[in-house]
């Protein structure tokens, strides 16, 4: 199952008088795969954290389907069906691999948990190999897979990932993107924040460019990939017309 995500004039940040996200509107259709790009400091991370309940929202609202997410604590956002994978520290390093998965599975009805953990093991065989080892012993790519599995285990209606390729080798980053494309193909709405624009444009269907806390451009991935002034767009020096 999959539901759309909609942002209405979202204002967010860490201090009320200094918002980092300054009014963002966009809608992501059910089953769509959207990338959010932009220069450093554009507010990409803050934007997705605010949607997930991990940063304060000062104005506007975010919806998953008809459910208002804004104002919910993070654990209720997950319960509502939207999973979020933060960029760093996205696994519990001192807990075992199995425990990392069990924690998220708690959200599900008791009877469904074992099957979902089994499904994650099938999707990410590395995680099934030594489930009782501390998650901190995993490699960078495996950690990212665990973080994604932790988010997927609840069969979310939409999933947001904040730079899942950060710190990974190009090959591993490619693996992550392929996995995401597979998950999206199975019907899950995905919003992906990425620095690695070229690689991400290969998998997303649409790109949103955020500059200084506002949407600068919202266009199909193919159009963006065809433009040779992406760098200038990021700096805000090129015309925004697609």
């Amino acid at each position: 199952m999959s539901r759309p995500v909609r942002l209405d004039g979202l204002v967010a940040g860490y201090e009320r008088d200094l918002p980092i996200v300054k009014g963002v509107d966009f809608a992501v259709a059910a089953g769509e795969f959207v990338g959010i790009f932009g220069p450093n400091g554009a507010g990409k991370s803050t934007l997705v954290k605010a949607v997930a309940g991990a940063a304060a929202t000062f104005g506007g609202a975010a919806f998953l389907g008809d459910t208002l997410l804004t104002g919910l604590p993070a654990h209720k956002v997950l319960g509502a069906g939207l999973a979020f994978v933060p960029q760093t520290e996205n696994i519990f390093a001192t807990l075992s691999i199995a425990e990392n998965l069990q924690i998220a599975a708690e959200v599900l009805p008791r009877a469904a948990r074992a099957a979902r953990i089994g499904a994650m093991h099938a999707m990410f065989p590395d995680l099934a190999r030594a489930p009782h080892r501390p998650a901190g012993s995993l490699s960078g790519g495996q950690r990212q897979m665990l973080a994604v599995a932790r988010a997927l285990i609840v069969s979310p209606d939409a999933i947001i990932l904040d730079e899942p390729s950060a710190g990974l080798s190009p090959r591993l980053a490619h693996d992550v993107f392929t996995t995401l494309a597979r998950i999206n193909a199975a019907g899950t709405t995905i919003i992906l924040v990425e620095q690695n624009v070229r690689a991400a444009l290969a998998v997303v269907s649409r790109g949103i460019i955020l500059v200084d806390g506002r949407v600068r451009l919202d266009a199909p991935a193919a159009d963006l990939a065809a433009r040779d002034d992406l760098g200038a767009l990021f700096l805000g020096t090129a015309a925004a017309a697609a």
Partner: peptide, 8 residues
């Protein structure tokens, strides 16, 4: 923070 995101 991660605990909350993980549904706790």
């Amino acid at each position: 923070a991660l605990a909350a995101l993980a549904g706790i």
